[in-house]
Design a protein around this nucleic acid. Structure first.
Lengths: 117, 117
DNA sequence: TTTACATATTCCGATATGGGTATATAATGG
DNA sequence: CCATTATATACCCATATCGGAATATGTAAA
């Protein structure tokens, strides 16, 4: 078995830096493919291929407008990533460190109240 | 060129579901390899290999204890993922939708104040 | 030191990748 | 209908993958 397909889920789709770039550009609003080609300096076929992957995991939606295809972000597909990673935020966030201090103080105070001290 | 190496960055490392599982288990505290093997029902070599990838992107740290190696999460490596994805939260979060409504109302009120209406 | 246990590494094979180039499809304009 | 523009797909290739099995390394116990 090889690595999971990039289309398997959002985690895989977004592991590719170019695809994150594409999403970042699209975050600024709906864009036709050629816009992305120019903005990102990539070849048109690669952009289309990346967009396909993003479409397959639901991270972008398309809309036909004449001979152009307008792509836009659909952030819902990214929610699982956010949900997963946010639980690790406490590891690096100072806010959580401070919260730990407060909780520790509370615990000590409580212990002091209840017992002989 | 093939897909970027899994060790290229945290995004790639974490695209593999088994590695997320490993991190999820380690989130409960320091564990030796065999613990993970038993808990996750994976073969020992694959666990060691996944741990190597996680080590290379800095998502876990190791500590030697006798003949065991104790692994623990180092969430700092996941911060870039959180930082990237959190900007898309507004796309799905109702809180942001409500904020949009409020902002829209404010904008209308202001327009009403300033002009002839 | 010989054995046993814990973990890491190596080698294999099947597979999907992502870039490049050429080409197909689709819609518009003349 | 033909040319042009916009996008998608097909094909090729070099590469890294992940799992499985066997083996190497390292530490502790007998």
């Amino acid at each position: 078995m090889a690595r999971a397909a990039t289309t398997a889920d959002a985690f895989n789709a977004v592991a590719e830096p170019r695809r994150r770039q594409i999403l970042d550009v699209l975050a600024g609003g709906e864009r036709p493919v050629n816009d992305l080609v120019r903005t990102l300096g990539l070849a048109q076929p690669q952009v289309s291929k990346h967009l396909r992957v993003l479409r397959e995991v639901g991270a972008v939606d398309v809309r036909d407008e004449g001979r152009q295809r307008l792509y836009r972000v659909n952030g819902h597909a990214l929610k699982p990533i956010h949900d997963w990673v946010k639980d690790y935020e406490r590891t690096w966030s100072e806010r959580f460190d401070e919260l730990d201090v407060v909780l520790e103080e509370l615990k000590e105070k409580e212990a002091g109240d209840g017992s002989s001290e």
